[in-house]
Design a protein around this nucleic acid. Structure first.
Lengths: 186, 186
DNA sequence: GCTCACATGTAATCCGTTACATGATTCT
DNA sequence: AGAATCATGTAACGGATTACATGTGAGC
């Protein structure tokens, strides 16, 4: 069976202790969604597929009073996850950034509109940074409990990433207002 | 008619002097594709839609000996483009980064595999940086001819963006090898 | 004559989101 | 009793890629 990157998000989340589709979604929504979003419409059908392929095992979970299906990684599933984590070759990288796209076409704007666009862009990334910072305390707790360090490192990376854009907007704003030549480092 | 962000890429490219669907694709492939990719499968049907909506006007182009259809922005199209460039509200932002995703799950790897993953990640962004640097001379020429400064600023931004990731990999590598605690700035 | 770039188009497919339907349990 | 959360699932839709089909003109 062909696995997409989204399949590995599911395997990875199960390895991190998620049991149900619902839990996978909840975990992804406060972590991987910033660099690989997933939705219920993918999760539930994919859980079935992964079970058929023998990479995960599911059973009705009587522990929780609720009607939920609890999944665990099989040995084959753990192996598949590890194979992906160490696989060689190109990594999927894709960015859709409407702000940068507008910036690219900003010669069609007058200077005040250009500055407004930069402000909008900065606002957007400040909003994202706040969102990540809100997640941080809970992530630190989970890290202390589990001993895992990479989720926290990834979160710090995400904040640094937002700071990159915010600083960039500041620098570009100065560039535009000071009417410096186009050449020279940003 | 509802316009998606991709429609505005087409309008924007026409404003920048592209005439045919082919030219739009060629221009996008050395510029906007890094933050908003488009394909022929979108371009040609969308050109028809935009013409029906009166935002662009097309005619068989006899100038070029070839069978090509040359489009130009109408006043309405120019207005629509400007409206989008100055529109308020959230900007579409989406990232799919398999490298960061693997990094997030990297607690499942031993230390040498973790370092290999970081090396792969850095390679990928170095490759992207080289790709952007290859484009730069031609972009500088076009900037000098047209007087537009934003495409070049965007390209410089893209190179800075790749550098951000490359530097990040270096810092994370040091963090892992020096076995420093998880806390503390990246 | 051959190859490459120019040029247009579409059908199949894939991937993913959104919206909706449904219902149980826990908390207040 | 009512609201919020837990929980599963799917159908419709949208957006985009891939692969293919087709043909012309320019340069070697």
């Amino acid at each position: 069976m062909a696995l997409g990157t989204t399949s590995y998000v599911i395997l990875g989340m199960l390895r991190k202790g998620a049991k149900s589709g619902y839990e996978i979604k909840a975990k992804a929504d406060i972590s991987t969604r910033f660099f690989w979003a997933i939705s219920y419409g993918q999760i539930y059908p994919e859980l079935k597929r992964l079970e058929e392929a023998g990479l995960i095992a599911g059973e009705a979970d009587p522990d929780s009073g609720r009607q939920r299906r609890a999944y665990t990684l099989t040995a084959a599933g753990d192996e598949a996850l590890h194979e992906w984590l160490t696989r060689e070759g190109a990594l999927h990288f894709e960015l859709r950034h409407e702000g940068v796209l507008r910036f690219f076409f900003a010669d069609a704007l007058d200077e005040s509109e250009q500055l407004e666009l930069l402000a909008t862009l900065r606002d957007e990334h400040q909003r994202l940074r706040r969102e990540l910072e809100r997640i941080q305390p809970a992530a630190e707790e989970r890290s202390a409990e589990s001993g895992d360090r990479f989720p926290l490192l990834t979160l710090e990376t995400g904040i640094a990433y937002q700071n990159f854009f915010i600083d960039l907007c500041d620098r570009l704003e100065r560039r535009l207002t000071e009417r410096q030549p186009v050449t020279g480092g940003i």
